[in-house]
Simulated assay, not measured.
Amino acid sequence: MKYLDNLAKAPNTLRSYCYHLKLYFEYLDSSGLSYDSITMDDLARFIGWLRSTHKSKKVTPIKQNESSFTKDD
């Protein structure tokens, strides 16, 4: 981050990079992975995790998909 700051990147850019790094390390922690031993498949799963509406098991979305409801047959 200091390198980017020395390049005079905009404060919002630095803030955005920090936020995304935070999310990356949250993903690694929740997946039980170490930052120095990830693979390309792990990175692909991280992108899927970012796109997911359920980033954390501690957070429940307000609006649920219809597919999440079960029918009583």
Rank of each mutant, 00 (worst) to 15 (best):
M1S: 14
M1K: 09
K2G: 09
L4K: 08
D5A: 15
N6H: 14
N6S: 15
L7P: 02
A8H: 06
K9G: 00
K9T: 03
A10I: 01
N12D: 04
T13E: 01
R15Y: 04
S16A: 11
Y17S: 07
C18M: 12
C18Y: 10
Y19A: 03
Y19Q: 04
Y19S: 07
Y19W: 01
H20I: 04
H20C: 03
L21N: 03
L21A: 05
E26L: 07
Y27C: 01
Y27E: 00
D29S: 04
S30T: 12
S31F: 10
G32W: 06
S34T: 13
S34P: 08
D36N: 15
M40I: 12
D41M: 05
D41V: 03
A44D: 13
R45E: 12
R45K: 13
F46I: 05
F46L: 10
I47T: 07
I47C: 10
G48S: 14
L50K: 13
L50H: 00
L50G: 04
R51L: 09
S52C: 03
H54P: 00
K55A: 07
K57I: 07
K58N: 14
K58G: 02
P61S: 10
K63Q: 13
Q64H: 15
E66F: 00
S68E: 15
T70F: 00
D72A: 03
